[in-house]
Design a protein around this nucleic acid. Structure first.
Lengths: 221, 221
DNA sequence: GGTCCTATTGACGCTGCGGTCAATAGAAAT
DNA sequence: ATTTCTATTGACCGCAGCGTCAATAGGACC
């Protein structure tokens, strides 16, 4: 397993007009996309600015024109990738009309669906896990923007279910319960990223089991 | 400092403490310990052989005397750290006499206890998550030695519970169920490593909620 | 067309790291 | 005490990668 750091990078097209000048509004997403790819493939420390630039078909120095350095680029990538996740969940919650049990089902299914449908998000999530302890700022960001938000959303749903009489009253505002409910979805994503779709536990199977266990476990007896 | 007359090999270090010669049996654990620390703190790519050597109070070249290279050192570290985990769980299962529900409780409590009591194990676990997708060999190792073993153990316990009539019969051999049952413990460990004991969801609270949800959810109705 | 702004670039400095090597020196065997 | 074996070391090599800078050129605006 010698590290064959083949610096093939991205190929630029020498035939085309090598140097097109774009507005930042157009260039930024390009750079972020390329950076996601580079970080996802090599990890934070393993990623190179030159590699990211090459993937975008751009000179390395241009990256430094848009971002102060590697760390800031990384944070920008994370922000761009993680934020949409909970927006959708919140939308579902706000739009929901039926029973709370049904809402729990919809949310859990949404989570597992994203695991299979949005691998890129999973990669960034894994990257975040991998690097957070070396970047306190990033850990704080993750805590505030991802975990806290997810936990708050989950607790709100559970609380509503308790108040409507569907769920066991002890479940209300249990600080650990929300975490236990979210964790399998997060792990499904992590496992899939690290082991690949074949070896990882099937998200569909986990979804079924998760639904059965959660709804059974929450239900008032 | 142009001329320090470099005679190779050279003079003994007067400031340095004695250069003690140890048997490999004594030196190896030292090196592994130091390497764990280095990898844990900097990640795989970020860790340096020189750093690991320095932590062990040893010259970098000595590391290369014991390990062929960085990759092998890393694998040795992972092996030394992960293997004991499931041994203990298996021992508990084999020694258990009471009801299956009680066994589930004991195993879940064991998992969360280790999360707080063995942070080093958690660090290696996180490291494994972080690097597995770049080291197919390592991913295979994780799959065979950690995940598969844990899943098999969990399924066996659930199956026994179903056969004894304690658990819902649908739970038997559900491939997703075991994963869903293990995931919160794994995530508790990951969260603790990435966020620290203060910000991470409390393992004790998760343990309580996990027990309630799992036992309630598994129980025959 | 001319002017200005700034997106864009290639080349460079420098640091740090993985890996190698010949030389040195504990300690066990004789 | 001498020999032998090998654990241990400092110095060195080559290179990859971050960050910098002065110079260039694309396009908007008049």
């Amino acid at each position: 397993m010698a590290e064959s750091l083949n610096r093939t990078g991205g190929e630029r097209d020498p035939s085309g007009p090598a140097r097109r000048r774009l507005s930042p509004a157009e260039r930024l997403p390009q750079l972020l996309d390329a950076a996601i790819e580079e970080f996802a493939e090599r990890g934070y420390a393993g990623a190179s600015m030159a590699g990211a630039a090459a993937r975008a078909g751009v000179a390395k120095a241009l990256l430094y024109h848009y971002f102060p350095g590697k760390a800031e680029l990384f944070k920008a990538v994370v922000r761009a990738c993680i934020q949409p996740v909970f927006t959708e969940a919140q939308r579902l919650v706000d739009a929901h009309a039926g029973s709370q049990a049904e809402l729990v089902r919809v949310l859990i299914e949404l989570g597992y669906a994203r695991v299979t449908a949005e691998p890129r998000q999973g990669v960034v999530f894994k990257l975040l896990l991998a690097e957070a302890d070396r970047f306190p700022e990033l850990a704080a960001f993750y805590h505030a923007e991802v975990l806290s938000r997810g936990l708050a959303l989950t607790r709100a749903v559970v609380r509503a279910g308790v108040e409507s009489g569907e769920f066991r009253p002890e479940a209300v505002d249990d600080p650990g319960l929300a975490a236990v409910l979210m964790a399998p979805i997060a792990m499904a994503s992590v496992w899939r990223i690290m082991l690949g779709p074949d070896q990882a536990p099937s998200p569909e199977a986990m979804c079924r089991a998760h639904l059965a266990l959660a709804l059974n476990g929450l239900r008032r007896r």
